[in-house]
Amino acid sequence: MGQAKDYELVFGGADRPGSAGEDLVVVHRSDRTGPGGHPVYVDDTGIVQAEISDRSEVRMIASGGHQQLPAAVQARPVD
Rank of each mutant, 00 (worst) to 15 (best):
P17A: 14
V78R: 15
H66R: 10
G37R: 11
L9H: 07
A14M: 06
R76L: 12
G65L: 13
I47N: 11
D44L: 13
V10W: 04
Q67D: 06
R76H: 04
P35Q: 14
V26Y: 05
G21V: 04
G65E: 14
L24Y: 11
A50M: 00
A75P: 03
T45P: 02
G13T: 00
F11H: 09
I47T: 15
V48C: 03
V25L: 05
R32E: 15
L24R: 15
I52R: 06
L9S: 01
H66G: 01
L69G: 03
G65S: 14
M60F: 05
V40T: 02
A20L: 06
D79N: 13
R16A: 10
V42I: 14
P39F: 00
H38D: 06
R59E: 02
G2E: 08
R16P: 00
G13Y: 12
D6R: 11
S63G: 13
G21F: 13
V27I: 02
Q3W: 04
H38K: 02
D54N: 15
D15L: 11
V48K: 11
M60K: 03
E51M: 02
I47A: 10
H66E: 14
D31T: 10
S63F: 07
Q74A: 15
D43Y: 02
P39S: 06
A72H: 09
E51D: 05
A14H: 12
V25H: 03
A62Q: 11
P35K: 14
I61A: 08
A75Q: 03
A75K: 00
V42K: 08
G12P: 10
A75R: 01
Q3H: 06
Y41V: 01
L24A: 04
V26Q: 13
E51V: 01
F11T: 03
E57N: 05
V10G: 00
V10Q: 02
D6F: 14
G36E: 12
D43T: 05
A72S: 10
V58R: 00
A75E: 05
V58I: 05
G21L: 08
M60S: 07
P17T: 00
T45N: 07
I61N: 04
V73N: 01
G37H: 10
E57S: 06
S63Y: 02
S63C: 12
D6S: 07
G65D: 13
G37T: 03
V27E: 02
M60R: 08
I52V: 04
R59M: 07
L24I: 12
Y41N: 06
H38R: 00
Q74I: 00
